[in-house]
Design a protein around this nucleic acid. Structure first.
Length: 1018
RNA sequence: GGGUGAUUAGCUCAGUGGUAGAGCGCUUCGUUCACAUCGAAGAUGUCGGGAGUUCGAAUCUCUCAUCACCCA
């Protein structure tokens, strides 16, 4: 049955993938040669909520190429797949699912344990989406080892067992014990939507249209000073008596929590009032708070008024100023970003703050963060609503700085208006929630990143880990050298719960398990109170378990009601009762994905896989997670097992739309890789991405380009179809033996194949994926299909049995090589052809990658075929330009033809005649008048077409060629005439230039002779 | 403000000191039995501007311009 005209990707892809998978082709070590080196890639785990986007398609195509290439080369290969549990994203998805049905309980109503059950249910139903999408792309991961960053966590259902949770907890405990993890109250990025802390990397700073308000902070007690403004030359441009200091702010609602006003120490304008108190111009008049005017390096004297309000608990810069100057931190908002409604009445709180400001009360003796300085009228308001009201109230009171109204004079327009600048401001947004992030002072857990960053920096500096492209090293260094403590706690439920328990005195017990913590608590109190019976009660999910000194459970009470503890205690007089409560927070997802390389291989167990594949080889990832992930993996692997996780990091750029815009849902310019695969096939999508993967450059993807590479697949398909139709594979041994033909064309194409194999290997070894793809494209289309298949036709159809046999064998081999070399990039079409064409001992996915090289290149065959090709091209070009009918068979004459040329003609006569449409070749003493001249190396030939050709046109053609030649020749000879060039340029360059000049000169002579003949005619 | 990169054919981009390239698009021709998802031929470039180093610069240095991204 003849082959179809095109490859049916839609039909074949699933079938082929299933065949690979069911044969275990992708499992770790499949196709490994005995004693082979290992090659391991860790997939950058996509979010379990994720679906395949173009970035994934790109990233995984490159990984798959490396993996398939190594596997075919006989490496012991593992591509480790998996997903990460994506704390915020997953919790968000599941909550949204629940909200679809109003009868469902909300997350808070159902409680932590029930909710987590729902999350696991969701994960088991929907968490595999991206796995199937990666399979459609052709990703040859070892799915039997699919990992998940929450596997093995308490409450994980059957099938979700694994060690990842153990690894995470163990690392936390070890780092805690080494003092690398600590808890503290610090300013963190708070997401008011999800009500959790997030790391600064999860914040997107976006420029938005904002306002800058200018307000007057009156000096305490009605004091005044002379405010003097000078220009650059020191001339006084403004001098006035003021009873206030002018403050500019983009966030008026935070004024309520101001602890000071700061000016630069060098700022003479405010020197008279430094150290004095001023009044925050908002809140009930009778309780106006006074704050000090201080100096600090932070304020920029040239920005705004030069004076800055300091709200230490709601701004990162202010926080630094407050810490340096012992300014109290007042928290104004709750976890939802609403103005606080808790605490004592404002009057009492304000009095306390006032006492602190005036020095009557020592701020360090009380927790100022508990003080609620939000006046009653603003309590409970959303922060943005509070801003509006604060602005309105201050303006109404006449404490806004006023400026002349540009519309003054128009009806109803006042002469002065409040000074409000419209200006772009950088505002932080949560990358998941898209709400404005609020800096908040909260208790959080931190990794002391500065303490573990050293080895991660060294490993890259000394080259044990190589980052490609090299310039991304700088990004890595810059971030690591300026590293901040990493906030790893999240106020979520979905994640690894922090393994720390607190007792009623606030002591911490960090332990890998609850019973471990119980024992720790027990021994702590036993040491203090050796004579007393001690029982430890642990609360966990509404249950209380009472344990003895060995951690044995004495009593378990479910659904504990209020007062139970007191009752229980009173029933046990003489027993010291220690109550433990586990920290409710979970760890940042990146803390667990930071352990991905060792965690997926079974650490802390000493598994054979860990032994074998770690350290892994290459990490391929997007530039956007150098900080998030690469740097953290480096730090954590080095901190935990003291080894680099991979020797090479290949950082790839962004896939953009064809206009260069970032793909985004809101712009609607997203190309869905799955739709593209449906339309063009996975191979075309993969080849496109590969061909465009120039290191460090963004990809602008257009469907036209994908269609082009789909056509490339079709081209390959049809070359194979031609071979099949000509019986090429009928007696094929397909054992990979290189044929040893005697026909020049056959020898030549074998050499070309060897050349491209070396190019592909070299390119892939250097991670130059685009070079590999383009080399193969040029070879398969430009050499095999354009020339070799055409050359083979006379041999296959009219050749001797010997010629036919060797050409069949050569073509079978060449096409096999195309399939093998293309397979890492285009796995489906190549596997399908492999299976269709011959009898194979194994699938292409496990075929042996060739190692032949330059020894197969025959220089004589090369030269001969290049001569033949250029002759054919010359003839075709001349014919087309002279409008010789395409189908016409024409005679050809030669006046001179050297021995090489003569031999080349003799050996390749049939194919030259066929491809150039020549009917005969004869010697002539001189070319007749009215002849198209063909000048080639070592020969002058002509097509005598007196009746057909247009003398003027032939003259024009020759003159044009000559002009071009002369221009080139001019450049070459100019160089050669320059004695300095001959002196200083390398010898081979000079030699090359001479040869080239000679050849051009010879060709030019031939053209001049031809022109002379034409002149005679005219 | 700091950093990184880009600027090469109409478009998208390769090209790290020695003859300016590819794909797409465009023009003309072509239904010869692998392929019209094709074939043949052709046109199109002061390699962003300027200066420098060099026998020689798209390539190295400086500078200016425009654009993009990252970090403040």
């Amino acid at each position: 049955m003849p082959m179809e005209k095109t490859f049916n990707a839609a039909e074949a892809e699933q079938r082929l993938y299933d065949a690979w998978e069911s044969a275990g082709c992708f499992t770790a070590g499949a196709n490994a040669k005995p004693g082979a080196d290992t090659f391991c890639i860790m997939i950058p785990p996509p979010n379990v909520t994720g679906s395949l986007h173009m970035g994934h398609a790109f990233n995984n195509t490159l990984q798959d190429i490396l993996v398939r290439w190594h596997r075919m080369r006989g490496f012991d290969t593992l591509w480790q797949p998996g997903q990460d549990h994506a704390g915020i994203a997953t919790q968000m998805v599941v909550e949204r699912e629940l909200a679809k049905d109003k009868s469902n309980a909300t997350r808070r109503e159902m409680g932590r344990e029930k909710f987590l059950e729902k999350v696991w249910e969701w994960k088991q139903q929907s968490g595999g989406t991206i796995i199937n999408q990666l399979k459609r792309l052709g990703a040859s991961c070892d799915w039997s080892r699919n990992a998940f960053t929450m596997s093995g966590a308490p409450g994980a259902p059957a099938g979700e067992d694994g060690n990842f949770h153990d690894a995470v907890i163990r690392v936390f405990v070890e780092m805690y014990n080494k003092g690398l993890i600590y808890r503290g109250k610090r300013l963190v990025n708070w997401d008011p939507h999800f009500e959790t802390a997030i790391s600064d990397l999860e914040v997107e700073n976006i420029e938005v249209a904002g306002h800058m308000w200018h307000f007057k902070y009156p000096l305490a007690g009605g004091e005044t000073y002379t405010y003097v403004e000078k220009d650059e030359d020191g001339n006084v441009i403004l001098e006035e008596e003021r009873d206030y200091i002018s403050i500019a702010t983009t966030r008026p609602e935070t004024m309520l929590g101001d602890g000071a006003v700061a000016v630069h120490p060098s700022d003479e304008r405010y020197a008279p009032i430094v150290g004095k108190l001023c009044e925050i111009p908002v809140g009930p008049k009778e309780h106006r708070r006074l704050i000090p005017i201080i100096t600090d390096e932070y304020p920029d004297p040239n920005f705004g008024s030069g004076a800055v309000k300091i709200t230490g608990a709601h701004d990162f810069n202010d926080y630094g100023v407050a810490l340096r100057n012992q300014i109290p931190l007042y928290v104004l908002m709750d976890t939802k970003g609403h103005m606080r409604a808790d605490g004592k009445p404002y009057a009492e709180e304000a009095a306390l703050a006032r006492a602190i400001a005036e020095g009557h009360q020592n701020a360090s003796s009380i927790d100022t963060t508990a003080v609620n300085l939000v006046p009653e009228k603003y309590r409970g308001l959303d922060r943005f609503e509070a801003r509006k009201q604060v602005v309105a109230d201050i303006t109404a009171e006449g404490l806004a700085v006023m400026v002349p109204n540009p519309k003054a004079g128009e009806e109803g327009e006042p002469g002065l208006i409040p000074f409000v600048e419209n200006k772009p401001i950088m505002q932080p947004f949560g990358d998941r929630s898209k709400v404005v992030i609020e800096p908040m002072l909260t208790d959080q857990w931190f990794v002391d990143a500065a303490a573990i960053v050293g080895p991660a920096l060294d490993a890259v500096r000394d080259g044990r880990t190589q980052i490609l492209p090299e310039r991304d090293r700088k990004v890595y260094f810059h971030w690591l050298e300026n590293i901040e403590p990493w906030c790893i706690s999240r106020q979520l439920w979905w994640g690894h719960q922090i393994p720390v328990w607190y007792d009623q005195e606030g002591n911490e017990y960090c332990a890998a398990s609850e019973s471990e913590a119980v024992k720790m608590a027990h021994s702590r109190y036993a040491a203090k109170r050796p004579d007393q019976e001690i029982q430890v009660a642990v609360e966990n999910g509404g249950n209380i378990s009472v344990r003895d000194h060995a951690g044995r459970e004495i009593e378990l009470v479910s659904n504990v009601e209020a007062g139970w503890v007191a009752d229980y205690k009173s029933g046990k007089p003489g027993t010291l009762f220690v109550e433990l409560r586990r920290d409710p927070d979970v760890l940042d997802t990146w803390f667990s994905s930071g352990l991905w390389p060792i965690g997926t291989l079974g650490w802390p167990e000493k598994t054979p896989e860990l032994e074998k594949y770690f350290p892994t080889d290459v990490l391929i990832t997007g530039f956007d997670i150098i900080f998030f992930w690469v740097a953290r993996m480096m730090m954590m692997q080095l901190a935990v097992v003291d080894q680099i996780p991979f020797h090479t990091v290949y950082v790839h750029a962004l896939v953009r739309d064809e206009k260069g815009k970032k793909m985004s849902k809101s712009l609607g310019n997203v190309l869905d890789p799955l739709e593209l695969i449906d339309e063009y096939g996975a191979d075309a999508v993969r080849f496109t991405l590969t061909a465009m993967a120039a290191m460090g450059r963004d990809l602008k993807l257009s469907t036209q380009r994908i269609a082009g590479y789909r056509n490339f697949g079709t081209k390959l398909w049809n070359a194979a179809r031609f071979a099949e139709m000509n019986g090429v594979f009928e007696n094929d041994k397909s054992d990979g033996t290189v044929p040893t033909p005697s026909e020049t064309v056959n020898t030549w194409i074998i050499g070309e194949t060897a050349r491209v194999r070396a190019e592909v290997d070299e390119a892939l070894a250097a991670y130059r994926f685009n070079d590999a793809a383009n080399a193969l494209y040029a070879f398969v289309w430009g050499k095999v299909c354009d020339w070799y298949v055409e050359f083979s036709k006379p041999l296959l159809m009219d050749g001797t049995p010997e010629q036919q046999a060797e050409t069949r064998a050569t073509m079978a081999w060449v096409i096999d090589q195309c399939l093998i070399l293309l397979h890492p990039i285009m796995p489906y079409i190549t596997e399908e052809l492999w299976g269709t064409l011959g009898q194979r001992s194994k699938m292409l996915v496990h075929a042996d990658w060739p190692t032949y090289g330059a020894e197969l290149i025959d220089a004589d065959a090369d030269r001969e075929m290049n001569w033949v090709i250029s002759l054919i091209e010359e003839v075709r070009s001349a014919r087309a330009q002279m409008r010789v009918p395409a189908g016409a068979q024409v005679p050809m004459l030669y006046t001179e033809l050297d021995t090489h040329g003569r031999a080349a003609w003799d050996r390749n006569e049939a194919l030259i005649k066929r491809l150039a449409r020549i009917e005969s070749l004869d010697a002539a003493d001189a070319l007749p008048k009215g002849c198209i001249t063909i000048a080639v190396e070592g020969g002058t030939l002509g097509l005598p077409l007196a009746g057909i050709i247009d003398v003027a046109a032939e003259k024009a053609r020759l003159e044009k060629s000559l002009a071009k030649l002369e221009k080139e020749l001019g450049g070459l000879q100019g160089r050669l005439k320059n004695p300095k060039f001959v002196e200083s340029a390398p010898e081979d360059v000079v030699e090359e230039t001479r040869d080239l000049a000679a050849a051009k000169s010879e060709e030019a002579d031939k053209l001049r002779a031809a022109l002379a003949r034409l002149a005679e005619l005219a």
